[in-house]
Design a protein around this nucleic acid. Structure first.
Lengths: 217, 217
DNA sequence: TCAATTCACATACGGCACGTATGCGAATAA
DNA sequence: TTATTCGCATACGTGCCGTATGTGAATTGA
């Protein structure tokens, strides 16, 4: 632990720092510390769950102590919020890419939903985003990240309304309903004995359900 | 605390107990203790959340100690499970009654869903069943109570398939999707600034969505 | 009716995890 | 170069939980 400290100091002094305002390395160190804490927490929360994850343990795993955590994130909840925001952004990015890759808008929308279900099967996302996140931080719609992935879905739906593919409904409301449905499906599939079979049934039923949105099916 | 103990002893000795096998009062005392613990926990979990609720506090509120809790429920999780099972049964009952009161099956199904959304607006149900329950006990589909209300919805859907109102989908899969959608809607509404307005939008969108299930809409 | 046993529940103990207060030392600013 | 900021570690107190143990009332059997 003491040598690690020394390591850091060496590396940060290594590059030729311009004489005036060597402010960068300082900021970089801070950013690195934050990133380390978020990464460590993310692993711990995913593997053990939020409640069981000991701050002493996973901060030590990152070569730090709880002091750094409290300094940067306020408390354990604050750190969870940071982790959630990071994952939320990643999901949003992946969804955007998928929907933009499809031939037509409707196809893109469906692909997006299926992709969301698949992502929700990842244990990390289930545990952090679907189970512990809401319990500790309250409903996602209240999160500062404002659930980027909800906004993504809302945008997709709005596009479908605009181009006349689906009936004129409230885009956000529909996005939330669809989101909830896919989320529930994911939890179901993940805890099923035969995920493959259940997944097939879920997707089929989902397609039938969303066909209700179409102007003509 | 000591006098309370005395009270109990007096009341239980009061009625004329038949000579043979006075086993009832004993069983009744146990059932009463369990019920008290469940009720106290239910209040505490609803008001403060599972994690913040102190076992010492709410058992004392019921005139008991943690000793009784561990004896009957094993641990805090076990008690939460008992609370969840109780609430689950209540919800199921209410849903059954509502759907059976409607003129036709489809109407009953829709009423049931709307009622579910409304119930989910109750803080107690939100907190215990939708937030803490899944986080602590895992996905509802794994609960011993097997989520009675999911079964209720599944039954309703199966009936609708049988009488040709909706297209032949997998009943359970659809029930879960619909359930997830309504659940998500409830969380959204509950945390909205203007619940009335949001509720209206959610129900509208919901009706559009489930129209996809109908054979002819 | 009386002794033995069960068992519902309380008490006592140890430990872990958290939040706060405080201290140090390096980077910045003057 | 001196003063100050601030990122982070250390130290301390507290509350909550799980287990081990104790006790007295209810039950069983002769």
């Amino acid at each position: 632990m003491a040598e690690k400290m020394a390591d850091k100091i060496v590396t940060e002094m290594a590059p030729g720092t311009p004489p005036r305002s060597a402010a960068r390395p300082r900021k970089e160190m801070i950013a690195e510390t934050k990133a380390k804490l978020i990464a460590a927490a993310r692993h711990a929360f995913a593997r053990q769950g939020y409640a069981e994850a000991s701050m002493d343990d996973f901060t030590a795993g990152a070569g730090l102590t709880r002091g750094a955590l409290y300094h940067h994130f306020g408390d354990k909840k604050g750190l969870l919020m940071a982790v959630v925001t990071q994952i939320d952004a990643e999901i949003s990015d992946r969804l955007c890419e998928i929907s933009s890759r499809a031939d037509n808008t409707w196809r893109g929308f469906v692909d997006e939903c299926v992709a969301y279900i698949e992502m929700s099967l990842e244990p990390e996302i289930q545990r952090i985003m679907l189970l512990d996140g809401p319990a500790v931080l309250g409903d996602p719609s209240q999160w500062p990240s404002q659930s980027a992935c909800i906004r993504t879905t809302t945008a997709s739906i709005q596009k479908l309304i605009d181009d006349g593919t689906i009936r004129p409904v409230d885009a956000e409301a529909t996005a939330r309903l669809v989101n909830g449905a896919t989320l529930s499906a994911a939890l179901w599939i993940a805890s099923a004995e035969d995920p493959k079979a259940v997944s097939k049934k879920a997707v089929e039923a989902f397609l039938t359900l969303v066909s209700g949105l179409l102007v003509e099916r």
